[in-house]
Amino acid sequence: MEKSRKSYNLTVIALLLLLLALTVFFSISFGSTKIPLSAIVSALGEGDASSTVYRTIKYVRIPRTLAAILAGAALSVAGVILQSVLNNSLAGPNIIGINSGAGLFAVLAAVFFPMSFYLKTVAAFTGAIVTTLLVYLVAQKTGASRVTIILSGVAVGSFIGAMIDTVIILKPDAVVDRAAFLIGGFSAVTLDRLKFAGLLIVLTFIITLIRSYDMNVLALGDDSARSLGMNVGVFRFFYLILAAIMVGSSISFTGILGFVGLIVPHTSRIIVGYDNRILLPVSALLGSIFTLSCDLVARVIFAPYELPVGIIMSFLGGPFFLWLLSRGSRGQLYD
């Protein structure tokens, strides 16, 4: 039984890797101009820096593809962490206000230190951490019920959302593309901007994977986890910080990208179950594929014009998620 489960999980991972490779190819190949595979291979191989194809691939398509992979994986993994650690299937970085918190700090950094992109990343994850802790403290103070966490997150998120709007209205130059920032998008991403945030995302993901079994134990409930020798408070804090770093890092280069952190973890659970050791890599892969596909659609559907990816994400993800929830008895997985 355990062996068949293992081979099923490995098959899922292999299929998702294949799907990711395909989506990466489409993402590099498609856009306002189509670049065939042979041109991609020769441009990357020979590296003729003066050719348009080389420049398009290196300075536009690859950074954009990497950004979508990193942001999709980071937000999905953050969603898994939040849902597991807060023991709440409704928790997602956008629902409990973490995205907004990161967004506010990123906007403030852009207003006061417009030239420093590293600072924007640090500010975004500081904002994510501050909001996470604020929501958690408010919920804990009032009993930390599952509903309270969501409600306090919604309240904090809406308050911070109003602050972001105010800052953007007062300093419209701070955020170059206001719509893209608020809905989320990858149009202005460069490799330089991606480096620091990308490194943070990869590092926190590795740490989360190494400590994924502890998340399973934490899901037993505070008393059970404590009686198994876990320092529940320390671990919960540690995971929340990891989630906040992931959310903050991705928001620093994508803007406020919602939804992916809520639906990808749930979809992944339907595919591989609740064991975080397999759920985390599957969510990361699925999140990357979903975000990359949405970005691709956003680029090609009205080419040469493009939509912010957040819009496509909601258009495709919303109905898909509803379909998943209503499918047979699967909806009963959630209490």
Partner: peptide, 12 residues
């Protein structure tokens, strides 16, 4: 070891 009365039943 301790077995609590109320606990969240894990999906495992």
């Amino acid at each position: 070891s301790f077995l609590p009365q109320t606990r969240s039943i894990p999906n495992i």
